[in-house]
Simulated assay, not measured.
Amino acid sequence: MVKTPRPVIGITPDINDTAEPETEYVLRRNYADAVYRAGGIPLILPYAADVDGYLESVDGVLISGGMFDIDPGLYHQKARKAYATKPPRTAFEKALIESALERQMPVLGICNGMQLLAVCLGGQLIQDIASELEDALEHKPNQAATTAHHEISIVGQSRNLVDLGARPYRVNSVHHQAVLPSEAYRTIAVAEDSVIEAIESSAGGFAMGVQWHPEYGVSPIDDMVLNGFIAAAKGYSSRRNKGS
């Protein structure tokens, strides 16, 4: 019996202060561990201008989270307060997402990665949940992401995660910005205050974003997301190899 090769998953890292002479790429180990457990080969992608070179070598792209903000100018808004942005990282990830979408390569955006995916698809963001939404939940709690913080409800049928059902799940979201509804993507899950917690591109394929952190594995929905992503990457790899 011939074993199907594990798909290669490119994961974007964070970066320390770019003004420092010894700037470091940073990625929590559990991102790579989660991809490997789900059946993929994790590959960390240093920032580069030639994203197509990377995409010729991977079968899926995971845009990781980070404690920074996306420039409101990228989604046609003016900044309503001071934000901490990381232009080099955002530019790299934006180019990576857009090129992957053109190739119909599976993309999974986590936390900040979901927000950037939404922006790349044509959506906009709530710049600050606490100051813009009345009666909002605390989406950026002090407790660690190893604990589920709040409940989400499945409000849309996903073509990729067929086993979600209608049950609620408790997840570990840690964010202060949020995705606004758009025709470019379908809302799959929302929190109790209606903040969007999961989206799926309307254009087809596997282009999903989740606002929580499935790499921690604190909720049954986490394995569904990661297994679905890896399954889509395997399918992409198989189709590409047949066409070569």
Rank of each mutant, 00 (worst) to 15 (best):
K3Y: 09
K3N: 09
P5H: 10
P7E: 05
I9R: 05
G10E: 05
T12G: 02
D14A: 13
T18N: 08
T18A: 08
A19W: 03
A19N: 15
A19C: 03
E22G: 05
L27Q: 02
R28E: 13
R28W: 13
R29M: 12
Y31A: 06
A32N: 04
Y36N: 06
R37F: 00
G40I: 07
P42A: 02
P42N: 01
P42E: 01
L43D: 01
I44M: 15
L45P: 03
P46G: 08
P46R: 10
P46W: 11
A48W: 00
A48H: 14
D50F: 10
G53F: 12
E56G: 14
S57G: 00
V58D: 04
G60H: 12
V61W: 12
L62V: 10
F68V: 03
F68Q: 06
D71F: 06
L74H: 08
Y75T: 03
Y75P: 03
H76R: 15
K78L: 02
K78P: 00
A82N: 12
Y83K: 06
Y83T: 04
A84W: 03
A84I: 09
A84L: 10
P88C: 00
R89S: 05
R89W: 01
T90F: 01
E93R: 07
K94F: 06
A95K: 13
L96C: 06
L96I: 02
E102M: 12
R103F: 00
M105H: 06
M105G: 09
P106I: 11
P106N: 08
V107H: 13
L108F: 09
G109R: 05
G109C: 10
I110K: 04
N112I: 06
N112G: 15
N112A: 15
M114I: 08
Q115Y: 11
Q115A: 05
L116P: 04
L117Y: 11
C120F: 09
L121V: 04
G122M: 10
G123F: 08
I126A: 01
Q127P: 02
D128P: 00
S131F: 02
E132M: 07
L133A: 02
L133P: 05
A136G: 11
A136V: 04
L137A: 14
E138C: 09
E138W: 03
H139W: 03
K140Q: 13
Q143P: 00
A145D: 04
H150K: 09
E151C: 03
S153G: 09
S158G: 02
R159N: 09
N160M: 15
L161R: 10
D163K: 08
R170D: 01
N172C: 10
S173D: 04
H176P: 00
H176G: 04
Q177S: 15
P181H: 03
A184R: 15
A184Q: 15
I188E: 02
V190C: 11
V190A: 12
A191Q: 08
E192N: 14
S201C: 11
S201Q: 05
A203P: 00
G205I: 02
F206K: 12
M208P: 06
V210T: 07
W212H: 09
W212L: 01
H213T: 06
G217P: 07
V218Q: 03
P220T: 07
I221M: 13
D222W: 05
G228T: 08
F229L: 06
F229A: 11
A231R: 14
A232L: 08
A233R: 13
G235S: 13
S237H: 12
N241V: 04
N241A: 13
G243S: 14
S244T: 10
